[in-house]
Design a protein around this nucleic acid. Structure first.
Lengths: 210, 210, 210, 210
DNA sequence: GATGAATGAGGTTTCATTCAT
DNA sequence: CATGAATGAAACCTCATTCAT
């Protein structure tokens, strides 16, 4: 209903016919995210998604294979988002403290806002569906590996297992985010949280080098 | 019918009437846990639980109000288990390092084995259902507070926010466990993991007191 | 629950063993009537009847074949009651006006009180089940015939179809009672209603003899 | 699938989309009436109604909220029918005898035919469900009041309580119809019955004015 | 491509009845 | 005879998906 206005905006699309879809896909995914975040994947009906998107139920099936495909699409979007929020080149220029802060702030910031709902849905299903869960876990591992590469050469980390360091950092981020998602409390400022967690990791480095 | 064999086991009870039986409840909860852990709450049918329990569908409803009540019962069991695994009195006698190890090993051990399935179910639904999620989060908070009390007087922690320290520890535990649940990989030995995490916390203490 | 006291009363039964039942049957029927009248036959569970009777569910089946048999038993009781409330010998002694009043007051009085519930149940099911319905209708017809016999010889009714006269009277009674049962309003005093209806019939007699 | 033939019949409608269709509703209600009249409301399954309507079970729920809504829809249809069969303007032109005959013949005729089943269902449930029962009773009261208005000015009824007169008439109609529904016997010609009942009322008028 | 009415398998839950104690 | 836990068929209803328009 409220989505009709969005449709209005999109009506000025220049293409004469509805075109194919990258726009439509996004609209639908966004609607799905909203619904899933609110009621969970299983308690959300395709009709609800359709209405939220301002479309008919049948139309959803022109753009997605089915309900599951919606979830997969959402998961893909989460991955893209995560990848986009982390720029290894930029990180490389920072000193260790700032590197850690930026590295941890990225996922925290991405999930801080209304996207928290997205995470809830992905995690909730990921805990049940082996494929989703593993993909998510692999994403974390990959991210840690990516960061570790950027830290590999730093002299002040000589003797430190940077991979494990960053994995510990991401474990903190995951634990923190899940806790927030469970409690329903709004998460504190990502920058502050990231700074606190960076301190933990720095303490760990200091201890290991001692 | 098929229940008679089970009843045979239980025949030592002299009472002629099974009464309201805590055994049956446990049997059913166990079956529910198995099914839920395997397929998730929503994809599990009451029929599946009944079959797993070796009972008729209708019988489940003599002991639980409905499917939801099964989940709640499971959640309650998790809580009891958590409470049972943490003995504040015993902890108080330990030095800091051992205290932290024991404090963190308790939940890790509880969830290490097949109970991992239980956690997956509870978390999966807790991420969607506000009441469950909050109850779970409150459990964590309460546990941290309980531990903090036991640490309050220690001179070597003068100036350290013990509450936050333990919360960080539990955040690590939660993150670690979720990661394990997601990846499907068997979690490493709880004692080892706990030791590693205790080191993180000790590093943090050292850094804060420096 | 409140029925336990009743059970207490009955405990002083002199017979050493529970005896057979005429007492029990009555207790159960009474409970059934209460439940059926409140929620209707179909919405009443055997468990509800058992509880109302202060008995176990299984016990009901020692005295009645099943739920349907309860309804039949109730119907039989209604018939007995109807028959008991009508004493042809006593009626024969009355003048026409009083005869009609008494004849109509009998069923009205029987149904006036809490027995109204009984009627509701019987009628409700009688409208659906051919056997019950026909038995009920036959009861009415029989009653009219019985009354007509008592009026047969009266000289002031020479030329009047007394059977039809009384059938009309019972039609009024039935219509009146059904209306009351539908509206839920408490029925007015049976005597008054009977008097009013008797007037209708007397007017009819007068008109026919004119 | 099997619906396509039906749709063929209906193909004359030019609208590309069936829209919300009043046809379907009627089809379903008719099927419901048939089933309910045969087996009663409670013994009729939604599946039976669907089959009778030549539709899938799920389809019923696109047009009615649930089983109860079917009953309510039927009740509404009965009301409409009753209202349609009574034309106050036309009645006003008749002399008293014909007025009464027409007034009583209307409901009798409406229920005489296969609609008798409809009445059985409505009454059967109305006797149990307070809301339905009251609505039905109110319908009767309203009808009597409507008729009384049309009779109000007649000089030959000066001094007669026309409201009560017509209520008595409807009580006769109700009693008569219920009796017929119970016995299962086919009701006699509505016109004849109405004439006989009109005579009763006329006798009553004569007696009251005497 | 868009629509949404129709489909029907399948889910949860109820409840009359049985039978071991 | 009394009990009441167990049974399991069957009811109502939901909802992902299809397909004629």
């Amino acid at each position: 209903m409220n989505t009709h206005s969005d449709k209005g905006e999109r009506a000025k699309r220049t293409s004469p016919r509805p075109a194919d879809d990258p726009q439509r896909r996004a609209t639908i995914l966004h609607a799905a995210q909203t619904c899933f975040a609110q009621d969970g994947f299983h308690r959300t009906t395709m009709r609800a998604v359709a209405r939220q998107a301002g479309l008919a139920e049948g139309t959803l099936y022109h753009h997605f294979r089915g309900k599951d495909d919606l979830l997969l699409g959402l998961f893909g979007a989460l991955g893209e988002q995560a990848r986009a929020s982390l720029d290894p080149a930029a990180l490389a220029a920072l000193n260790l403290r700032d590197f850690l802060r930026a590295f941890l702030a990225a996922p925290l910031a991405a999930l801080a806002q209304d996207e928290a709902g997205l995470l809830r849905v992905i995690l909730s299903e990921g805990l049940i569906r082996r494929d989703l869960g593993r993909a998510f876990a692999d994403g974390l591992t990959g991210t840690a590996a990516l960061g570790a590469q950027a830290l590999a050469e730093r002299p002040e980390l000589r003797g430190v297992d940077t991979g494990e360091l960053l994995r510990t950092g991401l474990t903190l981020v995951l634990g923190h985010t899940v806790q927030g998602a469970l409690s329903g409390d709004p998460l504190p400022d990502p920058q502050v949280t990231a700074a606190r967690m960076a301190d933990v990791l720095l303490a760990l480095v200091a201890a290991e080098r001692a």
